[in-house]
Amino acid sequence: MSELNKAMIEQYRNSFLSEVEANVEEGEWVKMCMQCGVCSGSCPLGKHWAHPPQEIFMMIRAGKREEVLTSDSMWMCTSCYNCIVRCPRQLPITHIMHGLATYAKKLGLTPKNQPTAKFAEIFWNNMMKKGRVNELKLGLSLYFKDGFGPGIKEALRNKDLGMKMMKAKRMAAGEFFGGHGVKDVSGLQKMIKKAQELEDARMKKFDEPEASQDG
């Protein structure tokens, strides 16, 4: 568990909200929610959410740090933007959901085996290797994320799709061996590393209340 993760949160106090505002992308919008619920009702994946967006916003205000950050709800967002379009207060809900997910991941609070989180990780690692996504490896890693047996089954289930992608040249068998990439891979990796450092430094620490107060 990260050091960032020791914050003492009191119920219905603003410390968690402040943390979200500081560390979560578009987090400063959370306080603007008026609990109408149109986001929750508009989400096409809504029924899979343990806590829909508007409830998550309320939980943030109520100081439910652990529950929010360990929730798998925000991992459900598919970026359809229905909620943003309909939100009467113009909250960038999609971005906030991704922001919360990223923040939870950073703190190591993401639920184990959360498939979307896993996929995101695989996607990221895949892309970081060469600076481009290797569709073949991405697909395979995804299939085999839960082990060899399920991987084979999953691969067979999707074989038609795979064939089509091959035909459309969206995927090539040769990619298995290395695959294509950007010109200056190490340059890219350096750049990302630096960005990560900057982001980590920017991130407010919420384990020392005094520190959070000056911010």
Partner: peptide
């Protein structure tokens, strides 16, 4: 004014 309150960090709890 409701928006203004929210904007300035007032928390509303139903």
């Amino acid at each position: 004014f409701y928006r203004s309150g929210q904007r300035n960090g007032v928390i509303f709890t139903k």
